[in-house]
Every structure is written in structure tokens, then in C-alpha cells.
Design a protein around this nucleic acid. Structure first.
Lengths: 362, 362
DNA sequence: CCAGATTTTGAATCTGCGG
DNA sequence: CCCGCAGATTCAAAATCTG
């Protein structure tokens, strides 16, 4: 739920640390942070045809020394940890110039890393000098607030669906932000490190629910806000440059209202209403005395009135008996047992449960 | 050149720090280090079929606390920096459990990072619990001894040739070590974390010359020595476990005199980029809530944010719903569904995929 | 002996709720 | 806090088995 005092769907103009300090503790569900990378470019870089590469030389990426960068990193990450709900998670993106320092500081502050996710760019800039491997990646760290944190949002099945129904890996092949998506002002890049919406799409879809509040303390051109709005999430942005704020406001305002909530959700099997096997018996979906079969019919059990089953004289839950019949320490009985229909075919009791849920539990 | 007092092509049995201290300063050309990752596994892990995962529970991966791990890391990296020639470079491999600490300490000691290289495993272990993204990577840091170091070995063209004559990226798709290459003792893994030779092949071929000395302070089963010998380099291994030393000695002794490098090369596999329908949604080629039509418009489905579609209240992949709508066991959804363009004409989603591939995947 | 089916396995910080 | 238990959860490649 949204706390009433939160500056929902707003961009706060000001210094990152100052503005973070004004947010209440444990108030946001998700944080995405794209901090300065502290690039240390020594000279201008030219392509083989001698044209100049337009690199990052913004004032916001200049720090006195590495200690100053560490201190700044520790400060904003500490504030983020305070502001994050107990159930929340944080994403931080960086490159090899800064991500190791960021990751070590996150661990020192108590964050517990869930994954390092590799953004593998499909169209990275070449290494013009032939002096190193082509740098085609940036790294995202996804973490919860502590090792002991019990629950956090991970829309496992949404990610699996996005990936052709196979478990999604921690390597994401996504193009850099170019073309119509890249915001330009007078023909120039409006922001030197604008992130692609496809990247935020995965971050937000994976680790938040519709209606959640997503905080981005380095809002820049507003990609986080734009995708949050498209996916029916609220956002809070912090940005110190008025020009970026103006660009982001205009960008987000132009986005139409999100699609219907149902299309934004991927229900988790874990959150489906729990059904005890005994409920199926009580409701007549399974009869007392009816036989349950393993898939190959080698194991046969009998249903008791209390929802337990009897096999070889042993009584127990569908799970306990399925485990015992296979000599395993545990087993999900819903996937093990079948009943015989009128035509003599086997039907899974998991399908019966699905039918019960649809017909009786809405 | 090889210093005469160096213990060339030998495995030194003993503690890593003690043995490193005995090596002369600026004496080796390349270091590859695979230190303990300090995994902190809390419970046993079982696969969905209840079989037990044989995890890493070796004594050598146990540290008192994170400070002890940092101190150890700083100590062996300092020694490595002393032992490395002014023209040498170092590789360190790790996972998200330790690589951020290792990277930060390397920077603190004065190492200058050249690349972070992602080992993208082609056959990683799944996340059996569905609680995170499948962890399919390990990270290598490649660094020179200081920012001011002028020269170092990088066989740019050898890498380019390995990669179908295109500049090699910092993402390497290599299988984990299995099959005949995986050393077994009494049918059990001889070492719990044996690295594939293909990985060391790239490391050594990229950053050393034939005749150079490659040092590995955590020698383990001796993959570094085996590949160094095959590629005509000298090695020095340090290993504290006599059992591992025996295994590595036998392994390396069985390797014949170096063959021509060309015979050892792993041909790079070119894979046609697989595109999930969800990618088109994430990239805005199809909108959330947009309608998909069968060719005759008799079947209409709606697009969800996760790339599944909804038809008659049933949700599933484009393939599953296309099959279901036709009463078939399976169907290729790419050939079944169409979207309506601005002029009201139907356009195949397969054409959209083609356009996406051309525009986004190069 | 071969093709196809089945089983095995891997550096993993891997559950949640109620009593 | 601990304990018990329902029940959700896997992919690619190699090895082994079967017909």
C-alpha cells in the first residue's frame, strides 16, 4: 500500500543524499539505482577513422579520489537501506570501474546479494585500439536488505514466461538505447548514459507488484519512471539537474495510462489458495474409498474420510505416502497421484484441485 | 625469459602465502588465481525430484568471518603483485559471493583493471527453488599491476581468430567441466570446482607468449598447468593439499609435448539468436493489451506484460494457446498469430520477429 | 551396434506458514 | 524461538540403459 505522505509519481529536484534523507524509513518497495560510474578517462578517444567518440565527461561523474567515491557510495546506499521496506529489494547497475566497490560496500552495509545480473549488450561499442576485449557488458547487483530477510517479491513465472517458458538466467541480451527511444535535444544526446526501457522492464516486472512504489535516486532521463508507469507501478525520482527533470517530466507525461491490471500480473503458484486434499473429499470431488494410482499404476492407495490415504496398511497425507512409496524424504503428492475416470483413464489429482479452485473458490 | 632460480614446471606443496613469499620479486609473466569463493551455504539443497545436490563444503572454503576473508585476499594479492613482472598481468576468477570484495581490494592495492570477463556457462545448474535468476556466470577480473604500466601482452589477433575474425568480447560462452575432462577418484569428483580447460586456454593464449611463466597460487587439480603445457608455456603451481598435488602431477605428466596450437582450438559455435515473444513485448514491438488474431480472425487473444497471451480466460505462451485454440497437441505460435497494423491489415508476428532480429540483434 | 529413451549431474549464499 | 509439514521447484549435456 502507498503511504499517504510519500511523494508518489513525482520527481524531486535536489541532491540525492538530501532528498533521500527526507523520505520515511521502510517506505518503498523497490529501488533501482544507476549511480555515477566514476569513469577515469585519461585522454580523448578517437575511432580508426579519427572521428571523436562522445564519451562521458559530465561534472556529475567527477570525484576527488577513490575515497570520496566510496564515502558517497556508502552514504546513498545507507539511506536506501533505511528507506527500503523490510520486504523490498534493490538493484544497482555499474561497470567494472565502480561495481566492485559498490558491491563490497553493499555487503558491508548488510545487503545480501541475490544475483549479479549481466546486461550483455547486443550492440556494444568496439575496442578501437585492439588493446583489450570488447567491453560488452554492464553488471547489475540485485540484493535484499539482509541475509535474514524472509520474503521478497520475485515474479518467477513472469520471468519464465518472458523467456519462452524456461527459467530466466542472470544474463540479459538487450540492445543499448538508440533510435527513437534515445531522447535528443537539438540533435544531441539529452543524457550520456540513458538506459534502455527493456532493461527496466525486466527489473520492475521481476521484483515488484502493480501498485508498488519504485524509487530511483539517480533519475536522469526518467527511464525508471517511464517503465514504472507503463507497468502500473508508482515511482519516486530524485534528480539534481533541472534540465534532466524537465526532460523526464515531459517524457513520462506523454505515456498513456497503463493496460488493465490483469494483463500486468503473473499469478504465482505459491500464492494460489491452499487446498487441503480433505477438502476435495468433503466436496465430493474424490470419494471415500476411491483408489489413487501412481502414474504407472504400480502404487495404489485408498482414500480415507479425513483426507489421508492408506497404502500397504500405512496411513498418511498424500505427500507422506507418495514420499514413502518412492523411498524419498519428501514429495509433492499433488503431482504423484491419479484417479481413474469413467472411461478408465487416469486423471491427475492436481487437475481436480484446479477444477475445485475454479468452481468453488472463484 | 625464465629466471634460473624459479621452480619452473613444478607444483609447490604448501600454504599459498608461505610459498608465494619464497618466490623472487618480478619473476613471473602471468598469474591465474582461482581463490576460495567463501560460499555461505545454509542448508542442503534438493532438486525437484528430491535428489541431493553435491555442493561445495570443503574445509578450504571456510573462513571465520568476512574480515578474515578480506585479510587473506589482501595478503595473497599483495604477494602476487610483488611477484609479477612489470610487464605482467593477473586474472582472478570468482562469483558474486566474493568477486566484489576481490575487485575492490585489487583496486586498493594499485592493480588497474583491463576487463571484467564474464564466463557464461552453456550448461549451468538451474535454480531449483525458483527463488532467483538462474546463476549462469562467473566473473574474471583481468588487470595490470598499475595504471602507469605501459606494456602488457595481449594477443589481440589470436583472440580475434578464435572468434570468427571478429573482435572478441568480454563474454565467453564455455561449458562447465564435465565428461572425460572431469577428473574422478573412485567415481567421485576429485575436486569440487575443477575449471574447464577451454577457459584457461583463452586466458593463457590471450595474455602470454610461448616460453612465459604462468603462476597459479591455487593450483587445485592443475588445469592451469595442463593448459600451459599444451600451449608451450611454463607453469608454477602452489597447492596445500597433497591429494590435489598428486592428481595434478599425474594429470600434467600424461600430457604429451605441446602440439600445434591450431589443433587445440575450440571452434566457436554460431547460434541463431532465439527470440522469446516476451522480448518483442519488452521492446515495444507489441503492446501490452494488444490483440493477436488468427489468420481468419476467428480467434482473438490479448497480450500480457510477461509475454504470455490470454484467450477465452486461458493464459499461456503463444505456442500453447495457438495449439489449444486449434485442439492440437502443439503448434508454432509464430506462424499462427497476426497483429493489426494502422491500416487494419494483418501482419504476422513472425515478420515482427524478423524485424526485431534485424534491428536489435544485428 | 545403433538409435532413442532415461538417468545423472553441476562453485547454490535456493521456502513459508502455523502452532 | 523452534518444530513440523504442506507443497513448489530444473536445464543442458553427458552418461547410461533399452530395444
Amino acid at each position: 500500500m502507498v503511504a499517504s505522505l510519500l511523494p508518489i509519481d513525482q520527481i524531486l529536484l535536489g541532491d540525492c543524499l538530501t532528498m533521500l534523507a527526507q523520505l520515511p524509513a521502510q517506505s518503498v518497495d523497490l529501488i533501482f539505482a544507476d549511480p555515477p560510474y566514476n569513469l577515469q578517462l585519461r585522454n580523448e578517444l578517437r575511432r580508426p577513422d579519427q572521428t571523436l567518440v562522445d564519451g562521458v565527461d559530465d561534472a556529475w561523474d567527477k570525484f576527488g579520489d577513490i575515497q570520496a567515491y566510496d564515502a558517497f557510495t556508502r552514504a546513498w546506499l545507507s539511506e536506501c537501506r533505511r528507506v527500503l521496506k523490510a520486504s523490498g529489494t534493490i538493484w544497482v547497475i555499474g561497470s567494472y570501474h565502480n561495481i566492485f566497490r559498490v558491491g563490497a560496500i553493499m555487503m558491508d552495509l548488510g545487503f545480501w546479494i541475490l544475483n549479479d545480473v549481466i546486461w550483455h549488450k547486443t550492440n556494444p561499442m568496439p575496442n578501437f585500439r585492439g588493446t583489450r576485449f570488447q567491453n560488452a557488458t554492464e553488471t547489475l547487483i540485485w540484493a535484499k536488505t539482509s541475509a535474514d530477510q524472509q520474503t521478497y517479491t520475485f515474479n518467477y513465472h513472469a520471468m519464465k514466461h518472458l523467456n519462452d517458458d524456461k527459467q530466466m538466467q542472470n544474463v540479459w541480451r538487450i540492445p543499448i538505447c538508440t533510435g527513437a527511444e534515445r531522447i535528443k535535444v537539438n540533435g544531441q544526446k539529452a543524457h550520456s548514459t540513458q538506459k534502455p526501457e527493456a532493461l527496466l522492464y525486466r527489473v520492475i516486472l521481476a521484483s515488484s507488484q502493480p501498485g508498488d512504489v519504485v524509487l530511483d535516486p539517480f533519475f536522469g532521463s526518467g527511464t525508471t519512471g517511464a517503465v514504472a508507469k507503463k507497468l502500473g507501478r508508482h515511482f519516486i525520482g530524485i534528480e539534481q539537474d533541472p534540465a534532466y527533470v524537465a526532460i523526464a517530466r515531459e517524457r513520462i507525461a506523454a505515456i498513456p495510462a497503463p493496460a488493465s491490471a490483469a494483463l500486468l500480473m503473473t499469478p504465482s503458484r505459491r500464492e494460489a489458495p491452499r487446498v487441503a486434499f480433505g477438502e476435495l473429499v468433503a466436496a465430493g470431488y474424490v470419494q471415500v474409498g476411491e483408489r489413487l494410482y501412481s502414474r504407472d499404476r504400480a502404487v495404489v492407495a485408498e482414500v480415507k474420510a479425513d483426507g489421508h490415504v492408506v497404502w500397504n496398511g500405512v496411513s498418511g497425507s498424500i505427500h507422506a505416502i507418495a514420499a514413502r512409496a518412492q523411498g524419498k524424504p519428501a514429495y509433492n503428492g499433488w503431482e504423484y497421484w491419479y484417479v481413474e475416470d469413467d472411461a478408465g483413464r487416469l486423471a491427475s489429482i492436481d487437475e481436480l484441485r484446479e477444477r475445485y479452485r475454479a468452481e468453488r473458490l472463484g
